[in-house]
Each structure stands twice: as structure tokens, then as C-alpha cells.
């Protein structure tokens, strides 16, 4: 994470002919289509994230936000199109799925912590088994992260003893322990009680300040406005409109965007 800022992230991107001397985009999504049976969920998504970008995906439920994140994480195969991570096409047939996922962190709406493991074991599992860190190194790394996000005293607790906000912060720490190049956040506050939302969003703010590249599906418009370098409005499987947060929220061009934001304002969420 922090160590990566301006760090060795350029190494993998030799194959992508980009402006010389600059890192290729952290992520490029080109014409991605995805259907589930008859339902066309993604209908030609194009999206690009530079290093340290924080891009928020907004849009109604069912507009394809989660599916897009799951496709990028290769949890769902795409029907058409390409996804390129730092110059490497991860949707290519021969791509090593497990290696790609090491570089992509994802945090889910429902936390998905492993209930049979302590917080520490949750966080150290992947570093130990995937990165082959020794137990001591993995513990050290996890403890530092837990400490940083105020979870040091929960180290040995089991997930069911934690509040929703704490569980979600552990899930974020679990993803960060793999030191991903890109963090995908899938409506991570939607399952939380309102008073627990802030503690989770503060973690994300902290990460954004640290330069973490993030793609965030969210219903928290205020948060999106604060944090996003760019906001994308998804509607019916396409990115209908994107731009700086101020622009999208204050002067949306598309009628659908205006409608959506109007409903959000009426619901008191902006």
C-alpha cells in the first residue's frame, strides 16, 4: 500500500505502449459485456483508472456496479471485451487467475470474513498461503495493519464477536495485507447500521490520502463527492456519464443522471 506509492508499480506494464516515462493506467476496462442468462448486466463498459485514482461507481441497484467489480476481480468471466491491469491483459485466456487476484483486493458488502478463524488468522491466511510469508512475518504485517486501523485489541477475537463496522474494517485489512495494486470496494457500507458507516468510510479516506488506487461502488453520495477523483454513473449496464465529482453532482448532463440524483436527494442521502 503506502510503500507502493511511486514505487515499483511500473515494472509490470512494459507491454502496454503508453506515454514514455509514465506508468500505464492502473486499470483499463475495454468494451466489457456480461450477461446472466437473458439479463444483459454489462453492455460495453469502458473505464480507465490512473495510479492513485479513486473512482466511485454510482447508480441504481441492478445497474451493474457489483458485476463490474466481480468481473475485474475475475470472479465472473466476461463475455466480451478486455480488462488490462497495469498493461497486462487479465482477461486473456492464459492469464494466471490466482496471480492476478493477488494484485487486486476486493471488499464485499457482506464482509465475508471466515467465521472459523480469529481476526489475525483471517488477515494472515492469504499472505501465508499465497505469498508464502512465514507466520512471524505475516503476523507482523497483520498486526501493523490492525494497529493502524484501530483493531489491535481485536486480533484474537472471532468475527462474530465484532460489530459490523469492525468486521468490515477487518475485511479491508485482510485485503490490504496482500498489498494490492488496486482495491475494489463493493458497497462496503450497505450492510452496516448508520452509526457504523463513518468508521468504515474513514478507513477509505485514510487509504485515499495514502495514494491507494481504488474503484468504489457506493450509495454514499456525500462520501463519493468527498473522496472521488472521478465519479461514474452506471445506468443499465453502461457508463452513462463520468467526470469530476463536483461536476456530476452539481451539473449532471444526462437526464437519467439527473433523475437518479434527484431521487437520492429526495431520500436525504446527498
Amino acid at each position: 500500500m503506502k510503500a507502493r506509492i511511486g514505487g515499483p508499480s511500473a515494472t509490470g506494464s512494459t507491454s502496454a505502449p503508453q506515454a514514455t516515462g509514465r506508468t500505464g493506467p492502473a486499470l483499463r476496462v475495454e468494451g466489457v459485456w456480461k450477461s446472466f442468462g437473458q439479463a444483459r448486466v454489462l453492455r460495453g463498459i469502458d473505464l480507465e483508472l490512473a495510479e492513485h485514482d479513486v473512482v466511485c461507481l454510482i447508480g441504481a441497484s441492478g445497474s451493474g456496479k457489483s458485476t463490474l467489480l466481480r468481473c475485474i476481480n475475475l470472479l465472473e468471466p466476461v463475455d466480451a471485451g478486455r480488462i488490462v491491469l497495469q498493461g497486462e491483459e487479465i482477461t486473456a485466456p492464459g492469464a494466471d487467475v490466482n496471480r492476478v487476484r493477488r494484485r487486486l483486493g476486493i471488499v464485499f458488502q457482506s464482509f465475508n470474513l471466515f467465521p472459523h478463524m480469529s481476526v489475525l488468522a483471517n488477515v494472515t491466511l492469504a499472505p501465508r498461503k499465497v505469498l508464502r510469508l512465514s507466520r512471524r512475518d505475516a503476523d507482523e504485517r497483520a498486526t501493523a495493519l490492525l494497529d493502524r486501523f484501530g483493531l489491535a485489541d481485536k486480533r484474537d477475537d472471532f468475527p462474530d464477536r465484532l460489530s459490523g463496522g469492525q468486521q468490515q474494517r477487518v475485511a479491508i485489512v485482510r485485503a490490504l495485507a496482500m498489498e494490492p495494486d488496486l482495491l475494489l470496494l463493493d458497497e462496503i457500507t450497505s450492510a452496516l447500521d448508520p452509526e457504523l458507516v463513518a468508521e468504515v468510510l474513514n478507513v477509505i479516506r485514510d487509504l485515499a490520502r495514502g495514494g491507494m488506487t481504488m474503484l468504489i461502488a457506493t450509495h454514499e453520495m456525500g462520501f463519493a463527492r468527498d473522496i472521488a477523483t472521478r465519479v461514474c454513473f452506471l445506468d443499465d449496464g453502461v457508463i452513462l456519464e463520468q467526470g469530476p465529482a463536483g461536476e456530476i453532482f452539481s451539473h449532471p448532463r444526462e437526464a437519467r443522471t439527473q433523475q437518479f440524483l434527484q431521487r437520492i436527494v429526495e431520500a436525504g442521502r446527498l
Binding site: N73, R99, R101, R102, N112, F114, L125, K129, V130, R174
Partner: peptide, 19 residues
């Protein structure tokens, strides 16, 4: 979602099953 969480961390299918 448990397997998805494990796989998303880079664990192989066997590791996700095993751990």
C-alpha cells in the same frame, strides 16, 4: 461467498477448500 472471498485473496481452489 466464503469461497469467493478466499479466491479473491488469491488462494487456489484447493486452498480455498482446504482452509
Amino acid at each position: 461467498s466464503q469461497e469467493a472471498a478466499a479466491r479473491s485473496l488469491g488462494l487456489t481452489q484447493f486452498q480455498a477448500l482446504r482452509y
